[in-house]
Structure formats: structure tokens, C-alpha cells
Write a protein that binds this DNA or RNA. Structure first.
Length: 298
DNA sequence: CAGTGTCAAGGTGGA
DNA sequence: TCCACCTTGACACTG
């Protein structure tokens, strides 16, 4: 079990997800921002290795506007060397990597232009991971998309579109249960048709489920990952006590976390802590479970 | 220089 | 039909 956090590290004195406004786009600004983001990602990964946090989500902002028509720079060639070196560092230290395109990426949309832009964005994500020469255990996680008043039809549309994606995307794409529309069971149905791995989000499952016990659900999701994909990825988060439902916790509830790790002993997975204070919670989580809890699973 | 409105992009649901 | 919300950060403009 590898423990990690997404995108941002507040202890390292640089940002790996710097961006700027479209209005102020220039090639020089783009190149300078990307250069800085890559350099900072290296610094963050070194921090992670040093602290034993071996799972990390790379921000989609690392290459700003990568799939926007305004960006005509072949960044994957210009930065081929530093990207390959980053990848070599990741591989050498056994880090697990994920990426998570945001809410605008909807491949089952009814609008052709939206699908087109979404595929372009997925292609960008795959191209980045490919430029790092990472193996197929580095994943791009995506929600199924919209429902449009007819979930069965929308699932079919997802599957049809999925099957037209190029190999570079197919090798990396995984789907994730969301908090309002597509439950774990819906994702499992899509897996049955396509073979796509299913990433399990604990908090979304809590918000949106078909009465399935969390351990059973996690076990089902785990069965969708082949050895080529690596072990199951889990997103773990919880609500902020006292705040309105849906607010992410400020800091991790260690008792809840340890309970989860204990409940799920017997299943191995890598776990991403989606908590506001990022690496601080990840460090506390790491310290709270013994080495045996992490290494001897399954 | 601190405060704050707004940011490429979509979908949902309440008014 | 319109708009706030989703979840969050931070750019960049305003005073």
C-alpha cells in the first residue's frame, strides 16, 4: 500500500501547477511556466521519496492550455529530456502516479464539440505520461460523465466513445464512482463491457451507493485491475465535521483512516488522501499505520 | 500591496 | 430558462 496526496505540496517552496490567464498567453510565458512546473515537480517528488509518500497525482495544470488551440508548442519534444528524467526518477523509486482531468472532460456528452475537446484533453494527459516513459500502472482517472435523463443510454454512449479512443489513452484510462450520478455498480457494469479498471472513491461511495458495504465494494473494484494496470487505486476523503455535506475535511481523521485500513486488510491498494492540508495529513496517515499494515496485505 | 472578482472548458437541479 | 453550485486555488486587476 502506497500513501499519497494530490497535486500540491505546501512544504516545498515552489509550485508544480502554476498557470496564467488565457488572455495573457504568450509562447514565452508558456515555456517559462512549463519549465518551472517540471522543475518543481522534481522537487516535490524528491520530498515524497524522502518522506515515504509513494503515491502522487500530477496536476493537469502542469502544461497550461495543453489541449487548447492557442497552444501550438510541441512541449513534449522541447521538454523531452527533463520529462524522461522525471519518469526515470519515478520508476527508480517505485512511485505510483495518477492524473485527474477535471469536470469539463465528458466523453459521453451529447455535444460533439464537448466530446472532441474532451478527447483532446485525454490525449494531452496520455502524451505527458508517455513522455515520462511511465508504464501502464500510471493512470488517468475520469468520471463517467453526464446522465442526460437516461443513464442506460448515457452508459452506452460512454462505452461507444471509449472504444474509439486511441491506444495511448486506453492503456491508462480508469473510471471512478462519483458522488451523485454513477455509483460503483454503474462503473462495474461498464467494466464488464470494456475491461476498464474502476478506481474506488470512499467518500463518493458514502454519498452515492446502492446499499453496498464499503469493504465489499472495494473488493469488487479491486478485481477490475489486471497486473499490467497495477493494484487498485483508492481516493480517500471524509467530510469536515460540522460543515455542510460535501465539504472536504481540513485535516485527516486518523481514527477513521485506521479503521478503514483495518477493515480492508486482505486487499492491497494504493491510497490517495484528498484532504485540504495535503502532505501534512498524508504524513500523519503514514505514521499512523504500521509498516506491517502496509506491506502485509492480501 | 491587500482585497477580491474571476478564471477554457460541463452538468445538475432548484428557482 | 436562468443561475448558483460543484471543489479549490490562485491569477491578476482594482483601489
Amino acid at each position: 500500500m502506497k500513501i499519497g496526496y494530490p497535486c500540491i505540496n505546501r512544504s516545498v517552496h515552489c509550485k508544480g501547477n502554476r498557470t496564467f490567464r488565457l488572455k495573457s498567453y504568450s509562447e514565452a510565458k508558456f515555456l517559462e511556466t512549463v519549465r518551472g512546473n517540471i522543475a518543481c515537480l522534481q522537487a516535490i517528488l524528491e520530498y515524497n521519496v524522502h518522506h515515504g509518500l509513494l503515491f502522487f497525482r500530477i496536476s493537469s495544470d502542469i502544461i497550461p492550455f495543453a489541449s487548447h488551440p492557442i497552444c501550438t508548442v510541441p512541449w513534449w519534444e522541447i521538454y523531452a529530456n527533463p520529462l524522461r528524467e522525471l519518469g526515470a526518477y519515478i520508476t527508480r523509486h517505485g512511485l505510483r502516479i495518477s492524473m485527474h482531468p477535471d469536470q469539463f472532460i465528458v466523453i459521453n456528452s451529447l455535444r460533439e464539440d464537448v466530446v472532441h475537446r474532451s478527447v483532446a484533453e485525454l490525449r494531452y494527459h496520455a502524451r505527458l505520461l508517455d513522455a515520462m516513459h511511465l508504464d501502464d500502472t500510471a493512470k488517468i482517472q475520469l468520471h463517467v460523465g453526464g446522465v442526460y435523463g437516461n443513464k442506460q443510454e448515457s452508459i452506452k454512449r460512454f462505452i461507444r466513445q471509449y472504444e474509439t479512443l486511441d491506444g495511448a489513452i486506453l492503456h491508462r484510462l480508469v473510471i471512478e464512482n462519483d458522488d451523485r450520478s454513477y455509483t460503483l455498480s454503474d462503473c462495474m457494469a461498464i467494466h464488464e463491457e470494456t475491461g476498464i479498471p474502476v478506481l474506488f472513491d470512499t467518500y463518493h461511495h458514502q454519498c452515492n451507493n446502492k446499499g453496498e458495504d464499503v469493504v465489499h465494494a472495494l473488493s469488487r473494484a479491486s478485481s477490475t485491475w489486471s497486473s499490467r494496470d497495477g493494484i487498485l487505486m483508492v481516493d480517500y476523503s471524509s467530510g469536515e465535521p460540522g460543515a455542510k455535506a460535501g465539504t472536504h475535511a481540513r485535516t485527516i481523521d486518523l481514527e477513521d483512516f485506521r479503521q478503514f485500513v483495518y477493515q480492508t486488510r486482505g486487499i492491497d491498494f494504493d491510497i490517495m488522501l484528498e484532504i485540504k492540508d495535503k502532505e501534512q495529513s498524508a504524513l500523519r496517515a503514514l505514521a499512523s499505520v504500521s509498516r506491517d499494515d502496509r506491506v502485509v496485505r492480501g
